[in-house]
Simulated scan of single mutants.
Amino acid sequence: MTEHLDWVDRYIAGEQRLVWHELRQLGSRVREPAFAPQAQAVCDEMARRARSNIETLVTRLREQGYRFHENNDDQTPTEPYTPPGPQAEEQVHWLEQRLGLLPMVLSSWIRIVGDVWLVGTHPQWPSSAAADPLVLELEGSRYPDSDIREYFAEEIETWKEDQDEPFLLPVAPDHFHKDNVSGGGPYGIILPDASADAHFVGQVGMPLVSYLNWAFQHGGFPRPTGDQAQWHVIRQLTKGLHRL
């Protein structure tokens, strides 16, 4: 593959889909010295675009009167986005020490993006939580009074007792729990994984970047029900968002 040295330039120029295809085709070979620097640079650029999209969505939702809250009966107000804290790089190493290599996009997300929680209620769209709002919590910056590592450590210990299946790092409640309804297990990411992109397991399994693009294409709500008011909101939210 002779074009890998142009991955970043091609990605920025608009060839995102083809660049991701090439990176995924490499699998764990993406870690080889000939590929790794450019591949990680693409993942970092993806994360910067995702962060910009999240900041834009939070601003637009607030302007529309959206209330960000927890998925509980009291609908406790909460911050929807917190950038990475000083422990972000350490968080990457902590996970790798316990699970092996992380996908490059996961490392980029933890270091550059932080945590996002778009659960809430829209004045024009009261059932917005049912549309599976984007949630991705890996770095723990949204919980300053607790340590997300304790939660991850418990999940890892439980998995070690019965390793019949790959470890699924929990990163978000499922769409039922986001709507404060009992449902299935959390969404997660399969680890370890030495690839560039991660494998995200939600309603279906797909590459993490594909899931994020799907979410941003729907204004952060990837399960719209087709309600007319809903689509009006989504059209306003999606204008000018970056493709990852």
Rank of each mutant, 00 (worst) to 15 (best):
T2W: 01
L5W: 08
V8E: 09
I12P: 02
G14P: 14
R17S: 12
L18E: 15
V19Y: 07
W20Y: 15
W20E: 11
L23S: 12
G27T: 05
V30S: 11
V30E: 06
R31M: 02
R31P: 08
P33D: 12
P37G: 05
P37H: 09
P37S: 04
V42Y: 03
C43M: 15
D44L: 12
S52M: 03
I54D: 03
E55T: 08
T56V: 11
L57H: 10
V58Y: 11
V58Q: 08
L61P: 10
E63P: 00
G65R: 11
Y66D: 08
R67H: 14
E70T: 10
N72R: 14
D74I: 02
P80A: 12
P80K: 14
P83E: 06
P83M: 13
G85L: 12
Q87R: 12
A88P: 10
A88S: 14
E90C: 02
Q91R: 15
E96I: 05
Q97T: 00
R98I: 02
G100A: 09
L101I: 02
L102S: 02
P103E: 03
V105C: 14
W109N: 03
I112K: 08
V113C: 04
V113P: 10
V113Y: 07
G114T: 11
D115T: 13
V116T: 09
W117A: 11
G120W: 07
T121Y: 00
T121L: 03
Q124Y: 03
Q124V: 04
P126D: 11
P126L: 08
A130H: 10
A130M: 12
A131I: 00
L134F: 09
V135E: 06
E137F: 00
L138R: 04
E139Y: 05
S141D: 01
S141H: 01
R142A: 12
S146C: 05
R149E: 01
Y151S: 04
E155C: 07
E157N: 06
K160N: 05
E161Q: 15
Q163H: 02
P170D: 10
P170H: 12
V171E: 02
V171P: 05
A172V: 06
P173A: 00
P173Q: 04
P173E: 03
S182E: 13
S195Y: 01
A196I: 11
A196S: 14
F200N: 02
V201A: 10
G205L: 00
M206L: 13
P207K: 07
V209Y: 11
Y211Q: 12
W214G: 06
F216C: 03
G219V: 01
G220H: 12
G220V: 06
G220E: 09
P222D: 05
R223K: 10
R223G: 00
R223S: 11
P224E: 10
G226I: 08
Q228T: 09
W231E: 13
H232C: 01
V233H: 06
I234N: 10
Q236H: 11
R243S: 08
